[in-house]
Simulated scan of single mutants.
Amino acid sequence: MALTTNYLGLKLKNPLIASASSLNSRLDNIRRLEDAGVGAIVLPSVFQEQIEAEADEVSCRVDAYAESSPEAQSYFSGAIANPYGMGPDSYLNLVRRARAAVGVPVIASLNGSSRAGWTDFARLIEQAGASALELNMYHVPTDLLESGQVIEARYSEIVEAVCGTVALPVAVKLTPYLSSIGHFAEQLVGRGAAGLVLFNRLLEPDIDLLRMKLTDRLDLSEPEEMRLPMLWIAILSGRTKASLAASTGVSDVDGVVKYLLAGADAVMTTSALLRHGVGYMSTLVDGLRTWMEEREIASLDDMRGMMSWLRSRDQSVYSRANYIRILGHYAAP
């Protein structure tokens, strides 16, 4: 029974990846994930705003004191915390310690929406020993004058700049709200992206009617949210040279299997681990092995993409024809 898979040119012992979350900021959890059989670990993101804030603070301090004491420059360091309680220096230290603590690949994560600060810090992440780098493109286009072309061009420039700076394999975590996902995905691959993570969830606010204010509660993803990323993984599988990682909605082994059948090279989960603890990773790995054994499937290669667009007997299930067919057969209660 072979659970091994290739993701970003890295050979993983299985396709299960612990995606970026607060759990992965602790070294004891990182070790426990390896003990539970995880294939790879994505560290929590360091944020563009954090990198820029540190650079601004250092610049201000240097400008203020450099004339009085040139040696003072060596004492300046940013200490602005990000949501996980880590500044850039602490993040780089986490990368080093995680790589020393476990044998599975450790993937660093950069979160932002513009080019500023990314390339320099990507180089530092590479020097710290990360196995790969994930670029988390999170941007809500609130500017009504900003076109989709402008946004996608900026993302492409970021990917090209980072990939041109480091030798690390780079994955891009995409939002589903793009004009043509398949075309844009291929543009990113042409700019150097080795992998695509589908998808990043936008955190939408809700309205508290009692207090008449916006709320920003974080809700963990649910299995029904799998359908959109599963659709695009199925469409892209076998048609792009990039590795495909599924993200969102994995709560049990059924979700893992569905993503693999659609064509994912790797399956990421955070919500399941936050709900059940890092030890739940072993349940997912063992469950996948059992599912394959019961069906006498010898390797992931034998099942990956079995339900993809490319291998489907009826490709219309992924197109407008199926949309019309579903509506035509729907019976109202």
Rank of each mutant, 00 (worst) to 15 (best):
N6V: 06
L8S: 14
N14C: 05
L16P: 07
S19V: 06
A20S: 05
A20F: 01
L27M: 05
N29G: 07
R31Y: 01
G39R: 04
V46H: 02
E49C: 08
Q50C: 07
E54C: 12
D63W: 13
A64D: 11
A64P: 11
Y65S: 15
E71V: 14
A81Y: 04
Y91G: 05
L92R: 08
L94K: 01
A98W: 08
A101S: 12
S109W: 01
T119G: 06
A122H: 02
R123A: 15
S131T: 15
Y138C: 01
T142K: 09
L145F: 14
E152C: 13
Y155L: 13
S156W: 02
E157N: 14
E157I: 10
G164Q: 04
T165L: 03
T175G: 00
P176G: 11
L178Y: 00
L188W: 03
L188S: 01
V197K: 00
F199W: 00
F199A: 00
R201I: 00
E204F: 12
D206E: 15
I207H: 15
R211L: 13
R217T: 09
L220R: 07
E222Q: 09
E222N: 12
E224G: 15
P229R: 06
L231Q: 10
R239E: 10
A242L: 09
S251C: 10
D252R: 12
G255Q: 10
V256W: 03
V257A: 02
A262D: 04
T270K: 00
A272C: 08
L274T: 13
L284A: 11
V285I: 11
R289D: 11
W291P: 04
M292E: 10
I297S: 12
D302Y: 04
W309K: 09
V317H: 06
R320M: 14
A321D: 07
Y323E: 10
Y323L: 09
I326Y: 09
G328F: 11
H329C: 07
Y330P: 04
